[in-house]
Write a protein that binds this DNA or RNA. Sequence first.
DNA 1: CGTTTCCTTGACTTAACTCAAGAGGAGTGG
DNA 2: CCACTCCTCTTGAGTTAAGTCAAGGAAACG
Lengths: 269, 269
Amino acid sequence: MRSPVANPLAHRLEQYARLSPEDRSALDTLASGPQFRIGTRRDIILEGERPSVVRLILEGWACRYKVLPDGRRQIIALFLPGDLCDLHVYVLRQLDHSIGTLTEVRYVEITRERIDMLTTHHPRVTQALWWDALVSAAIQREWTVNLGQRDAMERMAHLLCEVFFRLRAVRMTTGNRCWIPLTQNDLSEVTGMTTVHVNRTLKELRTRGLIAWKGREFEMLDLEAMCALAMFNANYLHANHEGSHLDANAARMMLHEAEAVAREDAEQK
Amino acid sequence: MRSPVANPLAHRLEQYARLSPEDRSALDTLASGPQFRIGTRRDIILEGERPSVVRLILEGWACRYKVLPDGRRQIIALFLPGDLCDLHVYVLRQLDHSIGTLTEVRYVEITRERIDMLTTHHPRVTQALWWDALVSAAIQREWTVNLGQRDAMERMAHLLCEVFFRLRAVRMTTGNRCWIPLTQNDLSEVTGMTTVHVNRTLKELRTRGLIAWKGREFEMLDLEAMCALAMFNANYLHANHEGSHLDANAARMMLHEAEAVAREDAEQK
DNA sequence: CGTTTCCTTGACTTAACTCAAGAGGAGTGG
DNA sequence: CCACTCCTCTTGAGTTAAGTCAAGGAAACG
């Protein structure tokens, strides 16, 4: 469950577009450049700097964040393995936020030229990268809804559903279980609540039999109930581009499909 | 102050890139297509639909929003005159949110072909459109911080600062005054608080002498104090691309420049 | 000129925050 | 191997910011 996936980016992009073997090997080439390692709770790039490369997370978790003058910190986005940090941001003059690690992280730097080369020769990859960037924006919008309208319980449940689905998309779940390295303090900075209240909220989710979470081993005990509680509608993740056409019932379908896959995984084991 | 600006898009893009007369007339051509009018509190496009055109708001205010199953509504983004709705979203199969009006709105629909034509022949416009899309994403991020970390007073002040600066960028302020058509209910859906609390928060801002707001006529009585209260750092709006290089003090500089412009406007009157 | 929408205020409730203290592990060094 | 620190998690007791309910007033609207 913890073992790094060979090329999580390729896994994820395949949700969005049917990639040829050439496309896949081009993506592998991207991910095979010089790798960097950086420890837990370190900054990768700081607000005010000018970004010159795109970073691809191969292993570990990172986040985008902003800090207010008085020290309050809000995590704005989570980067899981296979996530690209800031595909297009080199257009802007300076970064308006920082990027830091939550765990030890292994990543590769991809120069702008390599991205450009990839996109000129591999239209399906380009399409998938586009899709990916738009999904990131959609996630950002959903976080706005989450912070604005949902109460503590709903908000936490929603976050956990999102993380679970995103991890599943890069094959980092086993049945209903996955590895989530977030501390309760991290969660408080994501959800905008205090660590104490995060603790109480998680306790309640546990006692209701919805989740199990010990150390970093997380388990969805009742995915359907969690989705219902969170009012989680997976349509904003825009998965399954190449699958059957999505209609108004897309979210429900995806949910059921998710459980089918989970069951398969469990049996396979 | 209320009078529509000829081409607010051109005004705004000029912040981001130096446009030639040809660029400007190309933008004017865009804005001169068939216009649509739509009343207050109407939907322009609904969640689940597939968008086929880009819309440019010429006059009036609109918003992006999502509704939870139990009816709670969160406004995710504000569209002011000169804002483009969803430049790239036609890549996705279906919209994950709705767009509706807050006032009467006049807009033009721009086909994908026309956008493509514009971008192939006008590189500076392309650059500016890119910049604009990235600024929208930056605003979305800042809203996440606003909802997650700021309390009612700070949050309201921050929103008002942002709106004020964005209106100024399309020449829709006069001195420290501008026209803001948001009802207190709209504000509650933006800030994630109840209308009652919005009312009390605005009252407090008024009694502290920071703002004046009667009907739709809004006035920043003390911009500096408002920015300080809101911990407003304008760097996320990424204005002044063509101005002097921005450095770590960019926000402060912009703030002072803003006040200089405001003073000029006031004297001019 | 009546009706609807929007704003305003008071009294009360509650979800979430603050402060504080302790427990359980993981790692470190004597 | 034990004592130590550091970090994360947990829980209780009291506080507060924001929500709820309800009603009246002002403004806009047709």
